[in-house]
Simulated scan of single mutants.
Amino acid sequence: MFLATEECVVVHERRTRLVCLDREDGSVRWDVPMGTWPRDLVVADGRCLVLPQSPDQLVCLDLRTGAELWHIDLPRFSGHVVAVGDTVLVGGWRGYTPLAAFDLWDGRPLWQTPASVRAALPLTWGGGVLLGHGSDAWLMDPRDGGEMARWQLPEPLIGDELRPVFTPVSPDRCLARCGPRSLIALDLSSGAVDELVRHDVDLVGQAAEFVGGSVWLRELRAGYSAVDPDAGSALWRVDVGQPLASGVVRAGGGFVVASEGALFRLRPDGQVVERAPHAQRISALRDLGAGEVIATTRGTLKALALDSRRPR
Results as ranks from 00 to 15, higher is better:
V9C: 08
V9L: 07
V11R: 01
R14Y: 02
R15H: 08
R15E: 10
R17V: 07
V19M: 11
S27K: 15
R29F: 12
V32L: 11
M34A: 12
D40L: 08
V42Y: 14
V43P: 08
V43S: 04
A44F: 06
C48Y: 00
L49Y: 07
D56C: 10
L58K: 07
V59T: 13
C60K: 02
L63T: 14
R64N: 00
T65K: 06
G66M: 10
A67N: 08
E68M: 10
E68H: 00
L69Y: 02
W70P: 12
D73H: 09
P75C: 13
V81W: 06
G85V: 05
R94S: 14
G95L: 10
P98V: 09
A101V: 15
F102K: 06
L104E: 06
W105C: 07
D106S: 04
R108K: 12
L110P: 08
W111R: 08
W111Y: 04
A115G: 05
A115D: 11
A115V: 03
S116T: 15
V117A: 11
A119V: 00
A120I: 04
P122D: 01
L123D: 02
G127D: 13
L130Y: 08
L131H: 10
G134Q: 14
D136W: 06
D136M: 06
A137V: 05
M140H: 13
P142R: 00
M148Y: 03
A149M: 08
A149Q: 09
A149T: 03
R150V: 12
Q152W: 00
E161G: 10
E161S: 01
L162F: 07
P164I: 04
F166S: 08
P171F: 00
D172V: 14
D172P: 00
R173A: 13
L175M: 05
R181A: 05
I184K: 11
L188Q: 04
G191L: 05
A192P: 10
D194H: 14
D194N: 13
V197M: 13
R198L: 06
R198G: 10
H199M: 07
H199K: 04
D202S: 05
V204K: 02
V204W: 01
A207W: 09
A207T: 08
E209V: 15
S214W: 04
S214R: 11
E219D: 02
L220Y: 08
S225L: 11
A226W: 07
V227I: 03
S233R: 13
W236N: 13
V240L: 12
G241F: 12
G241Q: 06
Q242L: 13
P243L: 04
A245D: 02
G247K: 09
G247V: 12
G254S: 08
A258C: 05
A258F: 06
S259E: 13
E260D: 11
F264E: 03
R265I: 00
L266H: 05
L266K: 04
G270L: 09
V273C: 12
Q280S: 07
Q280R: 12
A284S: 13
G289P: 10
V293N: 02
I294C: 03
T297F: 01
G299T: 02
T300P: 03
A305R: 15
A305G: 13
A305N: 11
